[in-house]
Amino acid sequence: MDAYISVSNLEKEYVTASREIVHALTEINFEIAEGEFVSVVGPSGCGKSTLLKILGGLLSRTSGTCSLKNTPIDGPRNDVGIVFQDPVLLLWRNVLQNTMLPAEILGLDAKKTLPRAHDLIRLVGLEGFEDKYPHELSGGMRQRNAIIRALIHDPNVLLMDEPFGALDAMTREQMNLELQRIWLESKKTVFFITHSIPEAVFLGDRVIVMTPRPGRISEIITVDIPRPRSLSTMGDEMFVELTQKIRNLLYVEGSLD
């Protein structure tokens, strides 16, 4: 397997306001191939968001190495798009303007990116809402807006931090299907954090299972279910088996209390 993202012996410690040292991540080792969809599942406090921020160049690491396309990650880079737990849309910008934000900041040619923005808006079914502001959109629409904002500058890597955590169950399933479709069309390398075991299995080529205190990888599980997967996949024997296996891993570690 060709390593596109490679993390080895990653450690992260930080000092809290009360001068305590917190060991957030320890002995993190994994590789992600180009175009692969990797889910990360684990309970709160297992350091998954910290891991994502390190990959996004937003946090520094204490020790270990972390590289993308064989260059170390030392800061934010243009070939990475991030989707946060909250959509983090700028409230004074409409759907089109929010989508175009990265293009503006990176100084990309509007002539090229504007048609792309419209394509993306169509891709996630937001056409007709281009001039609507965040307060006029539903939660699902806002998150879709946030996803296409992360795609506008055509990054190779998409980092997603529990993007659907705040959505209701039905919208969430819809978004899972949509994300799979977008991924199949765009073939990005995706690092997807979630709380939900079924979501992790449904979307991932592999699932990284993490346990807390300190955050470490308990196991990496390959999901050998053919694509495109549909919601009925969740009833398949293999799917049920994998989710059960992950659940056991999390319970054995005593982390789901």
């Binding site: 921020k53 996004g56 160049g57 937003l58 800061g75 934010p76 880079r77 243009n78 990475v80 991030i82 946060f84 737990q85 909250d86 983090v88 700028l90 409230l91 004074w92 934000l101 990265p102 503006e104 900041i105 990176l106």
Partner: peptide, 23 residues
Amino acid sequence: DQIDLMRSLSASRWQMFWKMQFP
């Protein structure tokens, strides 16, 4: 999150201010 978003795009201090902080 907003700061992280702008940082992830390597926004300059000026862009950070006008496009996010001030509004």
